[in-house]
Design a binder for these strands. Structure first.
Lengths: 131, 131, 131, 131
DNA sequence: GTGGTCTAGACCACG
DNA sequence: GTGGTCTAGACCACT
């Protein structure tokens, strides 16, 4: 797997896991319909507890990223992730808010900020082309 | 004060405080050199614990946003906030990373994302003009 | 067959099967005395495990909905389903209890609730008239 | 507390807990804004694990029944429970569906069913008057 | 003292 | 073998 965790980070492990999997989907490393490792095997792979993996999976399921079949295991939502709605946009805005506030204080220009975003977007889409 | 806390939020109160003060600086509501309320009075104003305010102030001092004089009290750093360095840019990038990943999954175009950022930047700068 | 399963559902497949067959009987799509597919053929039809179908059939037999003859196969109870007794009424009540509690919390009026039930009753009986 | 669990039941404990709390709200035993016991104390009271209580609380929080303050503890949503929307009505319908199907098979008349519901509604509302 | 997180180990239902 | 549930015990962040 492509999972890469930082056990020293303040960010909870299950949150990191969520982000890593979302990034995997964003980059096309895992395609809709594709299977994810079982809770147990992923936990063993990464060397963490199965409950931690489960917590991440449950969250991703609730957000519509994945489906959890009781017996068959876990797959990326074959219909794709639910598109952005107003609730998501509000949430995104409120997460960007403090980042932009601090950037302004630190004299990061809007242009530089925009370029940084652009760079990240490109990074994801390149991964998509190749895989 | 312009502090606006959400006690239901998952975000710790001291973090919200930090963000609110940084936003106040970004919008020019509080200028470099200007004084901030003392730990005690701010805590009393908002109705939260002394320690919580103190924790926020300590963090802001650490980051160079404010100075804490034992007698004179708290002031916004008169020399302005330290400009962005590579460490800050890395940190900013790592915070944007998961946001952009999810946006891509949810079919938010780079353009829409960029416009959202632009909108937030404008919002801050308008506050600056008027105060 | 008229069986319609949701493999993504949290509801176990054998439970869904039970419900579907009961609904078939309620709507008159399958009449008392009528034969049901064998365990093997139904399993093959739907593409699920033998054991799963068997579990559903055993449950239905236990409840008096169907009879399972070793040779003749499976038939809907020709004498009709056992009528409601106190045990059944208690069970029904305990299943309705949490539904009604939540409905009250969510400001669903007794009238609206009643109309919803009425609508479902009608739905079943219409199926009965036509078949 | 008014919590009453059946440890022999097939129903998971955390689900029973959810139902009991919702019923408490429906009956007005716990009012909007009122505090619920802490995860630990409730777990100790009932004699179950704190994680089980937490799971129930998390679910209730997600459904809008309660608010969880990080430090202050748990309170019933002071703004009341979110009113029924179409999603809830669909869900309610799909839960009533199998109940009504079986009732029809067992020759429970629509009237009898309706009276049973009415009786349950009354039961809840009486609790409300008195408390 | 509160909830949040993580670990560990166990049993069960399902298919 | 899969996820679901429950228990138990530990540490941490927050206030």
């Amino acid at each position: 797997m492509f999972i890469n965790l930082d056990f020293e980070s303040k960010e909870p492990i299950y949150v990191q896991l969520i982000h890593q999997i979302i990034e995997g989907i964003a980059k096309g490393k895992i395609q809709p319909g594709e299977a994810l490792p079982s809770v147990r095997s992923l936990a063993a792979d990464i060397g963490i507890n199965l409950h931690t993996v489960n917590k991440a999976y449950q969250h991703l399921k609730q957000e519509g990223f994945i489906l959890i079949h009781r017996q068959k295991g876990v797959v990326v939502n074959p219909e794709g992730v639910p598109e952005a709605d107003d609730a998501y946009r509000d949430q995104l805005k409120s997460k960007l808010h403090p980042l932009i506030a601090e950037s302004i204080c630190r004299k990061v220009s809007e242009q530089e900020f925009s370029e940084l975003c652009s760079q990240l977007f490109t990074e994801f889409n390149e991964g998509k082309g190749g895989k």
